[in-house]
Write a protein that binds this DNA or RNA. Structure first.
Lengths: 232, 232, 232, 232
DNA sequence: AATGAATGAGGGTTCATTCAT
DNA sequence: GATGAATGAACCCTCATTCAT
């Protein structure tokens, strides 16, 4: 064990080794479980593998989680960002153009979620949603809806300030979400096992998506007259 | 059994019932397997369920596919459209603006793939890629690459004809792919089990995405000066 | 099909091909079954293999034998030599020394049983006896006992004529049987799959066994005084 | 559980019960497997039966042996006596007549192998040789060849000391092996299931075989002139 | 609290047997 | 009669879960 592990992680008095590990167990198990569930799926992941990756024995896993299914639920709960309030505040305080606001928002999302292992939770949820409908509903309420609300906030602001022209606000949200979800999906599926195909560079990817998202593909403003009307 | 099944399928001598069933079996099994693999994942789908959904007994499945894994591979093979050549021809023959061409392309894709049950193969591949790396590589070569080539063809055409302004062609492809993949993913995961959340209307979704994709969010044209340069 | 097969095997009017085959079916199935049971054992032999080797379909096997087990019993019944009466007569008519009689007997046995595929039945019975106790008892009565009676006949004759010195007649029978059974066992087990070990030459083997059997290993007659007494 | 099991097996610290069981398990399973494989054959023996006879559940078997086939191989390895070196030494140290040496050798073999359950391995190998050719080859090398070498050693000694007259040394070995193999075969096949037929008394059997083997059937000595010549 | 041996229900696969053709 | 597609009981093996240590 590296010496650093013997030092308490977040200030406070360093604990004796035994106690520290004991306290850290659930987190280590959740980390291991997230990795493996993302990699292999819930059904194909063996409990013993999770325990082994967390450095404990099979029996210990069941001391902390009463079943594999509860472990799954805990993994999801643990990895949904509860920081939407915080983000919302950051965005409400944002001063500047809405295009920059969107750029900032995606950057923050990438740094805090996309680039971390928590991003795997998206792939996990999408893969397993139909096997865990209650988890899916929970995720829908706790993550998807807040995210959509945030995006809508930005888009609405852009429209209100005369910066964005948006025909169908409800569905325009997906223009922001889709590229992000796609990036994460690739990172955790094909991108993780078909190296010749997809080492997508995230920075470049995000830059390109932002560019298209903000300005579109078309050269001429006059094309704007072909824009569809809001179907609502 | 529907009456139509009692009629010889393609003229000629009517086959005995037993033989006709035998001929139809692999297809019925593949259909059932696709449904279930998409719904529950490979590992969580029991062979017997596949057989039952196809209306046969467990043993019969193994008369047609030597193992569950081979069944999986056959499902993938069966559901990758080998029609890229055909599409390519259609697109090469296309006359009209590149924006319309892109619209036409996505509509065709939706009608022929997205709206059919074959669309589930995308979710399946993404969910299972890391458990079946060879399948993933196969899919990469047989589907992803041709699709990307088609998209690139259109985008390049738009650039060549002065219709599109594209900074980073290699990554702009993802601006076309991502919304389509996102739509399919939702359809087969959250959308299939969280009804209150996502009855995305595909027509409206595609219209909205095309709109943003072609024209961007920003009110024109003063933002153009903020466009990034091609990083290549 | 060789032309010879179209000719009735044992006299009589040649039948049309269909009828002949029909009549020959059970025998072909029994031959195939004997081969496979000897080679792989009863449990490890698949019914379909037997049918395939006999050139018929799986279903046909069950037209002639109601179950795999009945097939096994038929194989045993078919391959036990019912010719002990005939042999007994031959031996009773034998004129000459008892050593020659024994030699003749073993030669006949080798020619008519040991060298034929019927010899496999011995290995089969020994391998499967405990799974088919009634078959084993049947074999005991129908084969082992008559064989022992024949051997005893010869040995007794030798003793009566002053040619053989036999201490324990009941067990001396085994001195004749053991080498023959051993030869057959080797032929159908190790000898059939470990070529570097056991291509025992039957002629030489029998000659050697007869030699030892008749004269023993010891050089000096005076050793005779060490002979044990009949324990009976 | 017998009280003796609660006492540490070989001095030292008593093991916890669980650990002692763990240590004993493979042996118990191998014993059970030997019994059942000998009795019913490999294919007809169910894994669960083996486990049940060893007093454990089905799953436990697979904690110790990765598959039924590996269990089979372990049974064979476990039951081939690696004591040929030791025996060779005993025989090389033997002082006395070669006839007595042979008698001693067979007695030792009977006491240490024939009378034990390890003797079943012979029947097992012969029954299954063709289903496990690599096991057969292994047995050939590890058991048959050393045994033959030992027998040859004795016979050669007898010839060298002028005690034995042997025409064909290579095949005379079989005159020693055949009765022993025959005895074991009977013990484990017909003898085990046809009680009215074969309660062969081993002592008497061996005595009789030795008698015939050493002195032959024929009354001495005039027949000696009929002895065949060495065919080599 | 931690371990890991043990369990046994469950799932993939085989194959003897049936039966519509 | 002959076929071979279909069946489903039975078998091998896995792995989530338990519990004595």
């Amino acid at each position: 064990m590296p010496i650093s592990r013997l030092i308490a992680p977040r200030g406070g008095v360093p604990l004796a080794k035994r106690e520290r590990r004991k306290e850290a167990r659930p987190g280590e198990l959740l980390d291991a479980a997230l990795d493996l569930f993302v990699e292999k799926g819930f059904a194909a992941t063996r409990s013993e593998e999770v325990a082994a990756r967390a450095g404990v024995s099979k029996g210990t896993l069941f001391l902390y989680f009463p079943s594999k299914e509860e472990l799954f639920k805990a993994v999801v709960r643990e990895n949904i960002s509860g920081r939407f309030q915080e983000w919302r505040q950051e965005l409400e305080d944002f001063e500047g153009g809405s295009a920059d606001m969107l750029r900032y928002c995606l950057k923050v999302w990438w740094d805090r979620v996309g680039a971390t292992k928590a991003s795997g939770i998206n792939k996990l949820i999408i893969s397993e949603a139909r096997n865990f409908p209650d988890i899916a509903a929970f995720y829908q309420d706790e993550v998807i809806k807040p995210v959509q609300a945030l995006i809508r906030l930005i888009l609405q602001r852009g429209v209100d300030r005369g910066e964005f022209h948006i025909v169908d606000l409800d569905y325009a949200m997906f223009s922001v979400m889709a590229p992000m979800i796609f990036l994460i999906m690739m990172k955790h599926s094909l991108g993780a096992c078909v190296p010749q195909g997809y080492p997508i560079d995230p920075e470049r990817y995000i830059a390109s998506q932002m560019d298209t998202l903000l300005h579109g593909l078309c050269v001429r403003p006059e094309d704007n007259k072909t824009r569809s009307r809001d179907p609502k």
